[in-house]
Design a protein around this nucleic acid. Sequence first.
DNA 1: AACGAGCTTGTTATAAAGTAACATTTGAGA
DNA 2: TCTCAAATGTTACTTTATAACAAGCTCGTT
Lengths: 144, 144
Amino acid sequence: MEIACFIEAADRHCQQQGVKLTALRRQVLELVLSYPGVVKAYQVLADLQKQRGIAAPPTVYRALDFLVAAGLLHKVDALNGYIVCHHVGCSHEGLILVCGDCGRVEELDATPVLDVLRQQAGAAGFAISQQNLMLTGRCKECAV
Amino acid sequence: MEIACFIEAADRHCQQQGVKLTALRRQVLELVLSYPGVVKAYQVLADLQKQRGIAAPPTVYRALDFLVAAGLLHKVDALNGYIVCHHVGCSHEGLILVCGDCGRVEELDATPVLDVLRQQAGAAGFAISQQNLMLTGRCKECAV
DNA sequence: AACGAGCTTGTTATAAAGTAACATTTGAGA
DNA sequence: TCTCAAATGTTACTTTATAACAAGCTCGTT
Ligand SMILES: [Zn+2]
Ligand SMILES: [Zn+2]
Ligand SMILES: [Zn+2]
Ligand SMILES: [Zn+2]
């Protein structure tokens, strides 16, 4: 199963980082994984409540924050949501395309374009840090 | 005064677009202009309340939405905030640099890099919509 | 085993951000 | 002047996120 495989990789990744993928965090990660695209914190919260009876917002937000910090998830600010990172391990900067209609996500390599951006920003006195680029639009399936 | 000058330009800009920069919208624009960087909707709301006694959230959000649609402001999703566009008139998509240390904001033209991104995304079946790019980093003044 | 420091999770309450729906006002053109 | 559409006012609510403190767990030390 694909999810189990991802979880295993995530586990190894966390061990390497010296952080712990606890049962709760793993459970939240699985819930996010169970969606094809962007998920919102309160959706995850609802799912978690189905699985374990009770859960409060901080429980979910803490787990999500951890997973983002660990590089397993990305936050999609424009949609107040989260997506799974499909490039765990391969240190990278992603170009993340999010379909505003269906939430589907594609992650490309942003290295070349970020080189250009670093140069442009550098000329303006800005040192831009390691990060992902996030763009919203329409996927093939949702095209008009 | 710089603000007055900007307002005047904004007014012309709106007339050209066939939309109206009403007194309320102008007032909100002035409030946003009075900040050096990113401003939040509820800060503007509070300011507006000081100036005219009462005001409810929809009043501010509607004005902000209008100003964004008119190209006078940009929304900074990652910070739930708004900034003044310093490239009014020159149809563009902004490259917004935010200093993670001091909050200073600089806006460059993202049109060239977005052309490249449109091509890259298009090859992956994604039609990316009109939008701004936001990057965080360190400004000159905060450099180590 | 007993202890304690530090991380993790639970719990309660509240803050912050954003919007739906309907009423009222305003202003430009018929 | 009348009328319609756009703009604003108003009420109430939803969604998103965090503060603050309590309780539990883990692991190394005594
Ligand atoms: Zn990624
Ligand atoms: Zn789609
Ligand atoms: Zn701009
Ligand atoms: Zn700075």
